[in-house]
Each structure stands twice: as C-alpha cells, then as structure tokens.
C-alpha cells in the first residue's frame, strides 16, 4: 500500500512536470501552429540562469527561483522576436524546422560559452528531504512540485479567463485575424503567449534542477520530447489535452518502471514510444481534439 502510494505520487510528480512543459508548448502552438522544439532550450536557459546567479553570488533559493522564471519568460520572448516572427505565416513544417534550428544553435552556444560538461547547481538541495505525513514517507520536492504546478495551472486559467490578453489568446487559437480586427496587437498576443510558456518552462527548470542538482547543454531536450508527446497524445493545441497528456505520460513512465522486469529496463523508451505511436495511429488528432474548422489561420 505504502509502495502504491509512493509510486502514485511519483507518477503525479512526473506527470505534472510534463504537463507544465506541455502547456507551454500547447499555448504557443494553439495561437500560431508552431511546434516549438526550442522550448527545451528555454528550460535550459532558465536552468543556466540559476547557475550564473549562483556564480555571481546569489545563493538564496528565494532569489534564484524567480530569476529562473523571469529568465524563462525573457528567453521565450527573445526567441519569438528573433527567430519565429519571420516565419510566422510560413507552413507548419517551416516553423518546426526553424525551432529545431534554434534548439541546435542554443545548445551549441551553451556548449561553447559555458561547457559541454554538467555544472553543479546545488541551490535546492534543501528540498530533497523526506517528510512524514501520518505513516507515509513523502518527498518534500514532489509535494512542492504538485502544489506549485497546481498553482501555476490555476493562475494560467484565471489569466486566460479574465484578462483581455488572456481572452485574446484563447480567441486567437481559432480566429487570429479577427482578434486583430478588435484592435488587439497580434505581436502582443503572441509575445504574451510566449512569455507565459517561458514562465512555465522556468518553473519546470527549477524542479528539474532540484531533482538533478546539475545542468548541461542538453538539459531541456529529454523533458521537452516527453512534453511534445504529451501534447500530441492530448491533441495538439488543446490546453486541457496538454495537461491530460502530461499526466498520462507520467503514469505511463512510472507504470513501465514498476511493471517492467529489471533486465529489460533499456526497453523503457521502446515501449513508451510504441505506445505513443499506437495512440497516434488510433487517434491521429489526439485524445482531446480541437475540432478542425475552416478558420482564418492563413493570416
């Protein structure tokens, strides 16, 4: 029983991390049909901002965490301004490949400027404690992660429901040029979506750092691949789908670890990707599909 609860919590923590990253991808995708492969590098840059903060002597986690979040948002907006704006109206494939290019550029920049090898970021070591709730030993980090992700998602929902820009982002998922006809600046809507996705990436970076304790240039790659898959499973562009897909993937990961005999551990990926491919063949548009309409996406 104890084991089951522990694994359930594990799955929730993994899932919420994937969901957080997937939400960022879905936000950007929903308004400009861009599969932002460079999202992983936003996470990496947020991570390196923590490394640099410590390097210049900022040691308090209470300062480092906001720096990471701000760095995530800033980098996301910069990517949009520099790389994605020129290809905004291009076909999906062009955007996807641009994002891949950005991802490669930033990874190699980090390699060149900092180091190809992992660097220690020991700022959140406090969090790797175990606390006891009743009879259960629970990782403080996981608990915190669940709470923060819930808060972040809640905040995002409030923003999307009540602020004008939030409404505009939701409206732009289907009717981008009509949003412009409301006098709302397209650039602001897109920049806001990127900033939000960067914020979420920054939060994710904090928890990944807290778990790993170090960072390297390919830091964001693995989580973002997972988040991508979460998006595709959930239905690309659907925010609810991103969360659902992320959670599902978290449970899938843990289930594979728990159920797969030790000696086949290397097949984790093979099994996960087979299931993913199977899901996509079964439902190419994802589980929570955004209904395809003849909107005005060309403009």
């Amino acid at each position: 029983m104890d084991y089951a609860i522990q694994q359930g919590l594990n799955a929730l923590a993994f899932g919420s991390e994937y969901a957080l990253i997937a939400l960022g991808l879905a936000l950007v995708y929903s308004i400009m049909n861009l599969m932002n492969f460079a999202h992983g590098e936003i996470i990496a840059c947020a991570g390196y901002s923590m490394y640099l903060a410590i390097l210049i002597g900022i040691g308090s986690p209470w300062l480092v965490a906001p720096i990471a979040i701000a760095a995530g948002a800033l980098v996301a907006v910069l990517f949009e301004r520099i790389a994605f704006r020129p290809v905004r109206h291009a076909p999906t494939t062009t955007g996807l490949l641009t994002a891949l290019g950005v991802s490669i550029v930033v990874q190699n920049l980090l390699t060149l400027l900092i180091s190809p090898r992992p660097r220690a970021v020991p700022v959140f070591s406090e969090l790797s404690r175990t606390i006891f709730i009743g009879p259960y030993a629970i990782s403080l980090l996981q608990l915190l992660e669940l709470a923060v992700v819930a808060l972040a998602i809640g905040g995002l929902v409030l923003f999307l429901k009540h602020s004008t820009l939030g409404l505009a982002i939701r409206a732009a998922t289907r009717e981008f040029s009509t949003v412009r006809l409301m006098g709302i600046r397209a650039n602001r809507v897109i920049a806001t979506a990127f900033a939000l996705s960067g914020l979420l990436a920054g939060i994710a970076a904090i928890f990944i750092i807290a778990r790993r304790g170090s960072i390297d240039p390919t830091f964001g790659f693995q989580p973002v691949i997972k988040a991508f898959i979460a998006c595709v499973i959930g239905g690309f562009g659907s925010l609810g789908g991103a969360v659902l897909g992320g959670m599902l993937l978290g449970f899938l990961d843990v289930a594979i670890i728990v159920l797969l005999p030790q000696e086949y551990g290397g097949l984790r990926d093979a099994i996960a990707y087979s299931i993913i491919a199977g899901l996509l063949v079964w439902r190419p548009e994802g589980l929570l599909t955004r209904r395809i309409e003849l909107g005005d996406k060309e403009i």
């Binding site: 290019g101 920049l109 060149l112 240039p217």
Partner: peptide, 22 residues
C-alpha cells in the same frame, strides 16, 4: 578547441535558411 561550433553553424544555417530562403 571550440566545441559546439559546427553544431552552432548547422543550427544557424537551418534558422537562416528558413528565414530567408525557406
């Protein structure tokens, strides 16, 4: 040694290519 330079160039080519000559 400038590790990462070739990757950087390749990524830059993809981005520039997509921007100026998609």
């Amino acid at each position: 040694p400038l590790l990462g330079l070739s990757g950087l160039a390749m990524g830059a080519i993809i981005v520039l290519g997509m921007t100026f000559r998609p």
